Amino acid sequence: MNNVKWSLLVYSILAAAGIMGIGIAISEKSLVGAIACILAVIVIMGMGFRTKRKMRENGEL
C-alpha cells in the first residue's frame, strides 16, 4: 500500500463513476445526462493522464 498514487486512484474512481452515469442516463432516456457524463469522463480522464505525465516527468512513477 506504500506505492499507491492516491490522486490517480481518485481520478480512476471518478472516471468509472462517470461511465456508470452514462449507463444510468441512457436507461433513464436522458440525453442531457448522457452528454454531461460523457463530457465529465473526457475531462476527468484527461486530467488523470495529464497528472500521470507530470508525475512521470518528475520521476514520481
Score class of each variant (00 low, 15 high):
N2H: 08
N2W: 04
N2D: 08
N2R: 09
N3R: 11
N3A: 11
N3S: 10
V4L: 08
K5R: 09
K5C: 09
K5H: 07
W6N: 03
W6M: 04
S7D: 09
S7N: 10
S7G: 06
S7M: 05
S7Y: 06
L8C: 10
L8A: 12
L8N: 04
L8T: 07
L8V: 09
L9S: 05
L9F: 06
L9V: 07
L9Q: 03
V10L: 09
V10Q: 02
V10G: 00
V10H: 00
V10D: 00
Y11I: 00
S12Y: 05
S12A: 11
S12C: 03
I13H: 05
I13V: 12
I13E: 02
L14I: 08
L14K: 12
L14C: 07
A15W: 01
A15P: 05
A15G: 08
A15N: 06
A15L: 02
A16R: 05
A16I: 12
A16M: 10
A17D: 04
G18A: 02
I19Q: 00
I19V: 13
M20I: 13
G21R: 04
I22Q: 00
G23Q: 06
I24R: 08
I24K: 15
I24D: 04
I24V: 14
A25H: 02
A25I: 01
I26H: 04
I26C: 08
I26V: 10
I26W: 15
I26K: 15
I26N: 14
E28C: 10
K29G: 09
K29T: 10
S30C: 10
L31S: 15
V32Q: 12
V32S: 15
V32R: 15
G33K: 01
A34L: 06
A34M: 15
A34Q: 06
A34V: 04
I35E: 12
I35F: 15
A36W: 02
A36T: 15
C37E: 00
C37L: 01
C37V: 00
I38T: 12
I38M: 11
I38F: 08
L39T: 11
L39K: 08
A40N: 03
A40D: 03
A40L: 03
V41Y: 01
V41W: 01
I42P: 01
I42Q: 02
I42V: 13
I44H: 00
I44V: 10
I44P: 00
I44Y: 00
I44T: 02
I44Q: 01
I44K: 00
M45D: 02
G46D: 01
G46C: 05
M47E: 13
M47W: 07
M47R: 14
M47A: 15
M47I: 06
M47S: 09
G48D: 02
G48L: 02
G48A: 06
G48W: 01
F49I: 13
F49P: 03
R50L: 12
R50Y: 15
R50M: 07
T51D: 14
T51P: 01
K52P: 05
R53I: 13
K54E: 10
K54N: 12
K54H: 12
K54A: 14
K54C: 07
M55Q: 11
M55E: 08
M55D: 09
M55S: 10
R56Q: 14
R56T: 14
R56F: 13
E57Y: 12
E57M: 14
E57F: 11
E57Q: 15
N58Y: 09
N58V: 01
N58W: 11
G59R: 08
G59N: 07
G59H: 09
E60L: 11
E60N: 13
